[in-house]
């Protein structure tokens, strides 16, 4: 079944799924953006401009990191090779572009993040499907009956766990009752996603390890979870005091 799924798409199959997820996620986000006070136009722009920044920034930073290779063959800069790319650098540029756009358009942080949350949730689902299609983010070896044959061993279907968790989070958020406190929608997504990553990383066979075997992704996820819960708590407190002030007035 896994092989059939992986054969459905020609390489780069993971990229096709990620692009499809961005498109569907944006379409879903558009449906609710006005509710968060963000216009459809601003929503599209805050996705489109950072995306351009990601693509160009990732390539330019990769070229700067490998200057001698590009100096000998400058036309490689416009090559279609997806591997000539620095994803972390691209992400940093995308964030900078998003912040600059947000500031110039005077977009409030929390409502904007709330409006983008459906996109983030569908993107997480698309990422899981992309991992399944490419066989990356693979699980550790197991003898459990639902183990899958991948990369020469029977492994935890970590990509399937990832997809199920993303589906669950998307469902929970989509059918969550209307929330008037700005930021709650995004912070709930951040807390649920970091929590699921923290739990599911334990079944991965490709974790980067630190400090005698701790999984880096779990440590990062714990920090994100702690920040999300702290901000959720603070947002709730602020909202309660605001409501109390209003009723007193």
């Amino acid at each position: 079944m896994l092989t059939s799924f992986r054969n459905l798409f020609a390489p780069p199959r993971d990229l096709i799924l990620v692009i499809a997820a961005i498109w569907i996620g944006l379409w879903l986000a558009e449906k609710r953006s006005e509710k968060h006070g963000i216009s459809v136009n601003d929503l599209n722009n805050i996705v489109f401009f950072p995306l351009i920044g990601y693509i160009l920034g990732g390539r330019i930073l990769f070229a700067l990191e490998n200057l001698s290779a590009f100096a000998q063959n400058p036309q490689s800069l416009i090559s279609f090779n997806l591997d000539l790319f620095d994803p972390i650098g691209g992400l940093a540029i995308a964030l900078i572009v998003a912040m600059v756009y947000g500031q110039r358009q005077k977009l409030s942080l929390w409502p904007t993040l709330d409006a983008l949350t459906p996109l983030f949730a569908v993107f997480a689902l698309g990422l899981g499907l992309a991992h399944l299609a490419s066989g990356s983010a693979f699980g550790k070896e197991t003898s459990l009956p639902w183990g899958i044959q991948l990369w020469g061993a029977t492994r935890h279907p970590s990509q399937v766990y990832e997809i199920l968790a993303a589906l669950l989070i998307l469902g929970l958020l989509w059918f969550q009752k209307s929330e008037s406190r700005p930021g709650i929608y995004f912070l709930t997504f951040a807390a649920l996603t970091s929590g699921s990553r923290l739990f599911l990383e334990a079944f991965r066979g490709d974790s980067t390890l630190i400090f005698g075997g701790l999984r880096t992704a779990q440590v990062v996820a714990w920090i994100v979870l702690a920040i999300s819960l702290y901000l959720l708590d603070r947002t709730s407190e602020k909202f309660i005091s605001k409501m109390a002030t209003r009723s007193d007035g």
């Binding site: 550790k140 070896e141 923290l198 334990a202 066979g205 390890l209 005698g212 075997g213 999984r215 440590v219």
Partner: peptide
Amino acid sequence: IFISADRAGTST
């Protein structure tokens, strides 16, 4: 995090 730590570095 501590229970699921990969102390043996069991990645194959």
